[in-house]
Design a protein around this nucleic acid. Structure first.
Lengths: 222, 222
DNA sequence: CTTTTTTTGTACCATTTCGCAAATAATTCC
DNA sequence: GGAATTATTTGCGAAATGGTACAAAAAAAG
């Protein structure tokens, strides 16, 4: 659950600004959520430098001053779209990560979802925002770098939990190193994300995933 | 050995244009090789869209018309730099790939070289051209896509040879799948390339490599 | 109805960007 | 030395780019 616009009865006090029944001035002609989603698509497809404000304006239906007013300048908008992407990806993954399943099935599901995310897109596979554009920006931009590193860390940690659990249930031998396995699991995510972007067919990516799962779990679950 | 400018006695007939002792008109004020290397650095750092012809002009010392005359338009130049990058990387790797060593040592060396390549750079780690910018362009540009896919294939194949060899020497069990192992080895390359770009410290990357090698070779060489 | 508040729409600005044309310079061939 | 050839230099120009100023529009509040 990322953030919706309306909830029937919102009583919390803090930053929840959504249910405001009456705003003061002229109403917005756009929905920030969908506009941000459109911007995300563009940045993900063309990268930061490759996406112009005109492109963004056209895609969101907002003209440039509105864009600016709503999200700040180009870099701020980029960062907001990236935050949104990560929130969405995290949400999509979280459900699957927390389902208790045999380790192989669990990994299989995770990679299925990842492939869905990476391969979707009207004009070709969109790939992974982090891997495709954010990592590039990370060299020069400390804020983006922090987010990217955090993303890597979260993924590693989530996988590590899975493997630790599998050790507890005896699916993996006591000698297995959950952290090392987790990094290989992340590496598998990264490699399919990159290859997807170059239009490697899904079948082939699934085959890579199978090989990786066999390698990570094979020694034990054979 | 990629291509140098002068060799004392070049007698081959084909495309080897280097030793031409007398060119017809005004001599070039630049060396194509070093200019291309400068351009490569820029593209690798800032990507295709993020690098302007003015940047390239400043870095190479050639003004725009010269650039244009020597390498064609921006896209052609980009492609030429990428070809150069891959030729260099291939050359750097080839020596190491072909040295016969115990599989672990061999992998260790390969990853060492990879890390050297990815972490070098004055203004921060340069990462891998393929992973950082070329893969992004690959969605929309068929020519670049072909090169990128070829690159992935070459890497997979090179690793597969290593693993096959290790099976022959008995370092890996007969049950090992060289192609699957090779894809994991490539995945490890990819993950360190991406993480390097986000300034993950070398120590940490080396630790990932260690874990990966243990996983890939562990079952056998223990 | 008027005022206040917030957003939109139009237009504009300074700069950058890519590409090229025309003139100039340096070198070889005759 | 002159013609031919190849590179460089200067400068132009049309389009795109990021950003903003300002007036008009749409709603609530008084």
């Amino acid at each position: 659950m990322v953030q919706k616009k309306k909830s029937p009865a919102a009583a919390s006090s803090a930053t929840v600004e959504a249910p405001a029944p009456k705003r003061r001035g002229r109403p917005r002609a756009y929905e920030p959520d969908v506009a941000l989603a459109k911007a995300l698509d563009l940045f993900r497809k063309d990268g930061f430098a490759g996406t112009s404000l005109d492109d963004l304006s056209a895609a969101t239906g907002m003209n440039r001053p509105s864009l600016y007013g709503a999200f700040g300048d180009k870099r701020e908008l980029y960062i907001k779209t990236y935050q949104r992407y990560r929130a969405d990806a995290r949400a999509a993954m979280q459900d699957i990560f927390k389902v208790e399943l045999p380790i192989r099935k669990r990994l299989q599901r995770i990679y299925d979802v990842a492939l869905d995310i990476y391969l979707s897109g009207e004009e070709g596979p969109r790939g992974c925002f982090t891997v495709m554009t954010a990592a590039s920006e990370a060299v020069a931009d400390p804020d983006i770098r922090a987010m990217v590193l955090e993303g890597f860390g979260e993924l590693d940690k989530a996988f590590a939990i899975c493997f630790r659990r599998a050790k507890e249930t005896g699916e993996l031998p006591a000698s297995a190193d959950p952290d090392a396995l987790a990094q290989m699991a992340s590496a598998t995510i990264h490699t399919i994300a990159i290859r997807a972007r170059a239009r490697t067919p899904r079948k082939q990516l699934e085959q890579i995933v199978r090989g990786a799962i066999d390698l990570m779990c094979g020694a034990a679950k054979r």
